[in-house]
Design a binder for these strands. Structure first.
Lengths: 370, 370
DNA sequence: TCACTCAACTTGTATGTACATATGGCGAGC
DNA sequence: GCTCGCCATATGTACATACAAGTTGAGTGA
């Protein structure tokens, strides 16, 4: 019999809570007096007082000297059940993030959770501020999109204190390798591979790749891009791989694309773009040189965002779960909270991007072949 | 001597709190044991326990069985200062809303407020749920984007209870006429007027208007559209004004546009679209009929969203403050909270949309003139 | 009929005792 | 030098008693 008997006052508390849940006692009903309960349960009035004290603290009962003890209104009771979950993303308004937030928000609302939202603008210092503010009041769980994950994790101590406080959390899109928690990620390497493979199978041999490499997403897409070239034994000229950072995204890739088209002896026949946003941007760049997509240059985007359908030439791109990712994250987190599952990386999920072939890619023209 | 002597346990509580405030006891210092205090203050251990119990409840102390009682970290104490503000929008992921949310979020974060986010999907029932959840825990203020504002306000009681609880709130984008609070709105009627005026001055005489009329935004844009026709004394055929609701937005305007082009004896030469999203959609519709924008049909969008620049033919559109609106809303609300300004409609702000002329509108061709 | 008193009941405060249980240090014994 | 067990001390639980203070209603008296 290792199992410990609950203290009497706790047993009484459970009993009374069960009365409330069973509807035996309704709002503003008067409770039996302390002495009545004491006699009925064969315990002293002091013990009953201890129980009533806790129940009052927790908002289930209220007491009036000289009159008696009463059941609180359901409003006051139920409100304690509303829990809050935080989401910390890099950006809010850009691109696919609103869809992730929306998926999570609707799942959370349906399950009765409130959503705290904060963004980091991909800035470690803001990530720290946001974590501090979020944790300053009771939090039931946290969904995190890591900030600049290719550069390590200076806010590790905050994440450790999440463990210490037993607050469940999970990561989306990317992960900090040193942390052991469930993560919902997209297999970006596979996506990069599929993009390059698609173009190679269409006969392209000079494919330029534009990748944002200050987050793991871009690094992994690049990795898959390279692996496809190796696997198909296509030599890849170093100047056909363009790296850029978040700060440079407005200029560098655009100018590099124009350079590649106009300067290179043999211009590339296809671009693999870090995402749809960049693809649209490079579509412009191609047009300014007088060339056409897809006749002269094939384009592959990433993420299947709304932008991919807004253009006249609909973009070939790779899917991103977006809303589904947000919904899955919220539901997994709620499951962790309600079933007290421990953290652990085994839980997560990996999404494989699927290629969507539209109008921006085309079999390489005979005239283009070197 | 009316003044009642405080109970002993309360006196002790005051005493211990004064120790904490005076810095006599620092974080994680060990308190004297219950028995020591009891002897020192000439009271029983039970009384000391009562005091300690309350101080523990309030977060000042924590107790460890067998070890002793300790002072909590200042973190736990000071954290009570972080306040929470809610934002209730119709949509989260769509269109310009992410920008509004982003503007508000960054302003709030900078000022040390947390952001609770919820959406209504333009559904009154969900609006009610969201309000309930938000108000279930302390809230310092609320930013509301009204749901289906053209159809009245069934959740009025919730808004009245905001007043009752002295929670400041303000409205963005639209307003419930019966409520007296600051509102930040865009002068949509002026926008509708400018859109029509622009086309009229380019010589267009048969201008079709597509408006979503289940919210006030669309109704007002339509109003301005009509006013321009009156002012320039252009007769407007009833069949050139297309109404639709949120549910119909995928089909009705698209089909109506094709009908207008193909069925009408004299097809319209320009479309005024409820927003950029619809404009892109109708751009497609025009293309399927073999006509071109802007040569055959001029298009005006609304809101200057990122979509307006994604297309090959850059959209002529009207500005929307978006991020600025979110930032302004957050800062006004913080001002109301911190300076205890009362609600009142005098505070708000009205933004006037500006016309941005791009490539989708053109002077009417001689061949087009009936 | 009205106002007052008072008894009986409620919860609030205060103290005393007893034992249970968790912690940490000390010393005996290996 | 290490381990084990004991002990002192801390908080946790439980019960008993006493009186204070607020509420209610029945009973009393003018």
């Amino acid at each position: 019999m290792k199992e410990k008997q609950l203290p009497k006052y706790m047993q009484l508390k459970q009993e009374i809570l069960s009365w409330l849940h069973a509807g035996k006692l309704k709002a503003n009903d008067q409770m039996p007096s302390e002495n009545e309960i004491a006699e009925q349960f064969q315990m002293s009035r002091q013990t009953v007082r201890q129980t009533f004290g806790e129940l009052e603290q927790e908002g289930w009962l209220y007491r009036m000297q000289g009159k008696g003890t009463y059941v609180s209104t359901p409003h006051t009771q139920k409100s304690r059940d509303v829990q809050t979950i935080g989401i910390l993303t890099t950006y809010i308004s850009d691109y696919i993030f609103p869809h992730i937030v929306r998926g999570a928000e609707s799942a959370l609302r349906a399950r009765g959770y409130r959503l705290l939202l904060s963004s980091t603008d991909n800035d470690k210092e803001k990530e720290k501020e946001s974590l501090q503010m979020m944790m300053s009041q009771p939090l039931s769980g946290l969904i995190i999109e890591p900030t600049r994950s290719a550069e390590g994790n200076p806010n590790l101590s905050f994440y450790l204190s999440l463990d210490y406080q037993h607050i469940p959390y999970l990561m989306i899109n990317e992960r900090y390798p040193e942390m052991n928690c469930p993560s919902l990620i997209v297999d970006d390497e596979e996506g990069g591979f599929k993009a390059a493979q698609h173009l190679i199978e269409l006969g392209h041999r000079r494919i330029a790749g534009f990748f944002k490499t200050d987050d793991l997403q871009g690094v992994n897409r690049l990795k898959g891009f390279l692996r496809a070239h190796q696997q198909y034994q296509i030599p890849l000229l170093p100047e056909l791989v363009i790296h850029y950072t978040t700060d440079e995204k407005g200029q560098k890739p655009y100018e590099s694309a124009i350079d590649l088209i106009t300067q290179q002896a043999e211009r590339p026949t296809a671009f693999v773009c870090y995402n749809d946003e960049l693809a649209i941007h490079l579509l412009e760049a191609v047009r300014t040189t007088g060339l056409q997509v897809p006749q002269d240059i094939s384009l592959v985007g990433f993420d299947d965002s709304s932008l991919a359908l807004a253009t006249e030439v609909k973009l070939t791109t790779l899917t991103h779960p977006k809303t589904q990712l947000g919904t899955d994250a919220a539901e997994l987190l709620i499951d962790m909270i309600e079933n007290k599952r421990r953290n652990g990386s085994e839980a997560g999920k990996v999404y494989t991007p699927e290629l969507i072939i539209r109008e921006s890619t085309i079999r390489v023209m005979p005239s283009q072949i070197g």
